[in-house]
Nucleic acid binder design. Structure first.
Length: 274
DNA sequence: ATGGTGGGCCACCCA
């Protein structure tokens, strides 16, 4: 009994549906969480997802920017999307499913697209960076207050922060670059403690190993230069963290035709009794 | 130190 879950910042779901189809054919995720879908709910390619076996869709889109969705082979028992920072942005959606690979009880999956934060890592002069920090604070407050990560929960998404030294191509060079500054990493760690969440990717792949899920479009030879960052994450509540038996980062997806700048991160959960 | 490339969409916003 297994459940395979994937997260991917797709950077326009309409433009890149053919890549979604290719990825799903190869990796067979039961649940696919996408960020930056960049279309209204009415423009979402729902029939294409149904055609490739994802009959159950939870969509929180908006015109031109942001947008998240969860496509599932399993029935969706409940859908919630929460607004952060009173901005009206579509940056979160959560579903509840039943999967005996993970738990006898219902499991909630949260899909986040955290603000990128602009270029200047100073909240006093850069409102986008201030928004990013407020968003993370609000996530942590909500998780603590509502005990979001207490049990049977998973959180995935483009969190736009690479917390570990080996989550970036050059730790020292990126200390003042938004996505790897100490102030953001501290905020992200507070979110992790607020769950409390376990980083199941780093449970399976030790911190000594460099791991990236994003390479800039501005790097002409992304693979040989390999100036990547690990911005995309999968965390779980502690009670299910040991059930994540396999982690894959689909690096080759960055080399596909007209790629996203992010690649899928995939976790497979296996129940103790098989 | 700078600027490089993409997507949405029609003047620039965003990453």
């Amino acid at each position: 009994m297994t459940l395979t879950l994937a997260t991917w910042n797709i950077n326009s779901v309409r433009l890149r549906f053919p890549l979604v189809e290719k990825f799903c054919a190869e990796s067979r995720p039961d649940i696919l969480c996408l960020q930056e879908t960049k279309c209204r709910d009415s423009e979402f390619p729902s029939s294409d997802f149904r055609r490739i076996g994802y009959e159950h869709l939870a969509i929180n889109g908006q015109k031109g920017y942001h947008g998240v969705c969860i496509a599932s082979r399993l029935p969706i028992l409940n859908v919630v999307n929460r607004e952060f920072c009173g901005m009206g942005d579509s940056r979160h959606i959560a579903i509840t499913i039943q999967s005996s690979a993970v738990s006898a009880d219902p499991v909630t999956i949260h899909n986040f697209y955290v603000p990128a934060g602009g270029d200047e890592p100073d909240p006093k002069i850069n409102p986008k960076f201030a928004h990013k920090l407020s968003f993370l604070d609000e996530m942590a407050d909500w998780m603590r207050r509502d005990r979001i990560g207490a049990s049977n929960s998973i959180i995935v998404g483009d969190l736009n922060i690479a917390p570990l030294e080996t989550d970036v191509w050059n730790h020292k060079a990126l200390l003042k670059i938004v996505s790897h500054t100490p102030v953001e990493v501290e905020r992200l760690n507070q979110v992790m403690q607020a769950g409390p969440w376990a980083d199941i990717v780093r449970k399976r792949i030790p911190p000594e190993v460099r791991l990236f899920s994003w390479w800039s479009y501005r790097s002409p030879d992304w693979s040989t230069a390999d100036k990547g960052r690990r911005l995309d994450h999968i965390w779980t509540s502690e009670n299910i963290s040991t059930l994540a038996t396999d982690i894959k980062i689909i690096r080759e997806a960055r080399g596909w035709e007209r790629p996203s700048d992010h690649v899928p991160v995939v976790a497979t959960f296996t129940s103790v009794k098989s």
